[in-house]
Every structure is written in structure tokens, then in C-alpha cells.
């Protein structure tokens, strides 16, 4: 180490060192690629809520990086009983059974109730107003058909690499799903 190399020698040595580092990097990169090729599928994924795992804890409304949340209530109308007394719509101790805000479970009045024909009412979610709080979902699941449930809406979701709600969800109800089937919708014939 104490000798003083000529300029040429030192640049030779530097060149060798550079080549060595480059070679090692390429080797490591190649090995990683090889391993990845055998281990990983290349499918595109997005995040989605499994409605059968969600416990309607309310974290979806507050944990999303967006505010209001990218999670909204969706309604599978085919499963709905069109109940006059919808437990997803009315407060359990609602003073009156009409559309007044004081009777409604939804904190933002995001559910629209329309009479189709006696005694059937249709409940539509106005997505711009829904904040994904899951209150209606809990009501519908507890005493109704469970036709209201939460889904991550992909027109809003920014597709975080690590979904902030998935991190906070107590039941790991949020998982990556293939991007070509981006929703986990409830079906009439499912449990």
C-alpha cells in the first residue's frame, strides 16, 4: 500500500475495480431476474375489499390516503329485498319512517329511497356523497339481505403500493385482486 503507483497503473487498477463492481452487479441482477422469473406471476393487481370478510368497522372511511375515501358503499340490487323498512337506511330508533335526515342512518344522506310500487322501495347510493363509513352496510347485514357492502372504487383509488386501509383493517379483508377482475361483488346465489 505504501508504494506510489504510476498514474497508468492506478487508472488500470481503477478500471479493474469498476469492471469488478459492474460484473458483480450484473451477476446479482441476473440472479434476481432468474429467481423472479421462476417465482412470480406478472399479473397486474389492484386492491379490493372482500365483502365476506369485512366487519364494517368504519376504518375504511378514515384510513384511506384520500379524503373522502376511495371506498364507497355499493348496492347489489338483485339481492335487495326492497324492504319498506330498510335497516340499512333507517336509524334503529328512527322517530319517523320517512326520508327525514333525523331518521337516516347514513351520516351524509347518501342513500336515495324511491317507491317503486307498494310496498317496495329502491335504495340507491349517491356515490359522490358516500364516505364509506359502513353504517348502512352494518345495518343491512344485521337485519336485511346484506345487499349493501363496501368496495374500493377504482375511479377514485390511486392504487397505493401498500393500501393504507389494508394495513389498518382488523380482518385483512382487503387484498390484491387481478386488475381485470377488480371487484368482489356479492352475488344473489352466494351465502
Amino acid at each position: 500500500m505504501a508504494d506510489s503507483p504510476q498514474a497508468g497503473q492506478s487508472s488500470d487498477r481503477r478500471g479493474f475495480f469498476r469492471g469488478l463492481v459492474r460484473g458483480l452487479a450484473l451477476l446479482a441482477g441476473g440472479a434476481t431476474l432468474g429467481l423472479l422469473a421462476t417465482r412470480a406471476q406478472a399479473a397486474r393487481t389492484v386492491w379490493q375489499i372482500d365483502p365476506y370478510k369485512c366487519t364494517m368497522c368504519g376504518r375504511c372511511a378514515v384510513e384511506c390516503v384520500l379524503s373522502p375515501s376511495a371506498v364507497k358503499c355499493v348496492h347489489s340490487h338483485g339481492m335487495c329485498g326492497y324492504c319498506e323498512l330498510c335497516t340499512g337506511f333507517f336509524e334503529p330508533d328512527a322517530p319517523n319512517l320517512h326520508e327525514g335526515a333525523e331518521n337516516q342512518l347514513c351520516p351524509t344522506g347518501a342513500i336515495e329511497r324511491t317507491l317503486i310500487e307498494q310496498p317496495y322501495f329502491e335504495y340507491r347510493i349517491k356515490e359522490d356523497e358516500c364516505i364509506g363509513c359502513a353504517k348502512c352496510v352494518a345495518g343491512c347485514a344485521a337485519f336485511g339481505n346484506g345487499s349493501m357492502y363496501l368496495q374500493i372504487r377504482h375511479d377514485r383509488c390511486v392504487d397505493c403500493n401498500d393500501c393504507a386501509i389494508a394495513r389498518a383493517c382488523p380482518t385483512q379483508a382487503i387484498r390484491r385482486v387481478p386488475a381485470d377482475q377488480p371487484y368482489l361483488l356479492k352475488q344473489v346465489d352466494e351465502p
Binding site: G78, M79, G81, Y82, I116, E117, A142, S147
Partner: peptide, 19 residues
């Protein structure tokens, strides 16, 4: 928590209401 069961059958509408 409950995930809901089909407690009430979906209605048969007399009018031609589409879901």
C-alpha cells in the same frame, strides 16, 4: 358481525321495473 343472509326474497315487481 354478520354478513347478511337472504332474509327477504327479492320482490316480483308487477310494473316492469328493471333493477
Amino acid at each position: 358481525p354478520a354478513w347478511g343472509t337472504q332474509r327477504f326474497p327479492p320482490p316480483q315487481f308487477e310494473t316492469d321495473h328493471t333493477l
